Amino acid sequence: MIEMGLKDYIFVTGASGIGKTTLANGLLEHYKTTCIEQNMIPEFISRDGVEPMTGELEELTCWENLVAMLKCFHKLGYKNIIASDIDDLRTADIPIVFKGSNYITIKLVSSDFEQIREQMKNRPNNGLIDYELQQKTNDKNLTREPLVNEVEIDVAGKTIEEVLKEAIEIIDTRESLLDYEYVKPPKELFYSWVFANGLR
């Protein structure tokens, strides 16, 4: 029996600057569990000190480390483990890697691109401002059909508090599928920071 409002994993996805970290931090404060982001992966230069690091290998290393950390926390009994800052292309792997787990993906989108452009422009510590990446990711997310256990929240016109409240309501009431048929969508429906996959 699955206890409502108690997930194994909560994934937060969306375009750069749309509010993923803000939402993840709000969820962390609400659920009092743990939050894992890709930027927590230790620095690495090469596998053997000689071989050059390619974009694909860098992305694969980050993804595999993220998955390992998530599963480690789960093995130790943690619930509502929040994961954010995932390469959009990897969103399609979540239903494969985490099948059988009680997980949910909150996909943030905005029907008002100017809103997330402003959010990105005003984000703290002057993070990388890549409006082309931001718009292309958001456009792809807006047109792509939801994946298994994925719920979309349009942040347009909403405050941080309203988005958080909506996400919590979804997490606490939406029952996740544990057993399902899933065909991984074509990579063209996703965006990625890995230059070599032809999506950028």
Rank of each mutant, 00 (worst) to 15 (best):
L178D: 02
D130W: 01
E51F: 03
L147P: 00
I104L: 12
D85W: 13
K158G: 02
D8A: 14
E56K: 08
D48Y: 04
Y9I: 15
N197C: 04
I104E: 03
F73E: 02
L60K: 07
T159F: 14
G77H: 07
L108D: 00
Y9S: 05
G198A: 11
L178C: 06
D87N: 04
V163M: 06
Y182Q: 09
L27K: 13
L57D: 10
S192V: 05
P124Y: 05
K136V: 04
I82R: 15
S46H: 08
I104Q: 02
T33C: 10
A83Q: 11
T34F: 08
N149Q: 15
I36E: 04
I45Q: 12
L89H: 02
K158S: 07
K184G: 00
Y191C: 00
L23P: 09
F73V: 15
L60N: 05
F44N: 02
N141V: 00
E114F: 09
P146H: 08
N125F: 10
R144D: 00
I86W: 00
I94M: 05
I2W: 03
Q115P: 06
P186D: 12
Y180A: 04
N39L: 04
G17A: 07
F98K: 07
E51S: 13
N138E: 06
D88K: 01
Y9K: 11
W193T: 01
A167R: 12
Y191G: 01
V67I: 15
L199W: 02
D130T: 03
F113W: 12
L70Q: 09
L27Y: 06
M1W: 04
V50E: 06
D172R: 14
L66S: 09
D88G: 02
G49R: 05
N80H: 14
L57K: 15
T143K: 13
V183L: 08
G26R: 03
V67D: 06
F195R: 04
A83I: 14
G5W: 13
D112P: 00
L199Q: 07
N65L: 06
F98C: 05
I45L: 09
E51Q: 09
Y103T: 05
L57W: 11
Q115E: 14
A92K: 00
D139Q: 04
F73D: 03
N197T: 00
R117D: 08
Y191S: 03
I2Q: 14
I116W: 09
L128C: 03
L23K: 12
G17K: 08
P52T: 09
N125K: 14
T143V: 13
G198N: 10
L142V: 10
D88N: 13
D172C: 14
P95T: 12
I45G: 04
G19Q: 04
K165N: 09
T21R: 08
M4N: 04
G77W: 02
D154F: 11
Q119V: 03
E114Y: 10
T34D: 09
Y180P: 11
D154N: 14
K71R: 14
M69F: 15
K32R: 13
K32F: 08
S176N: 07
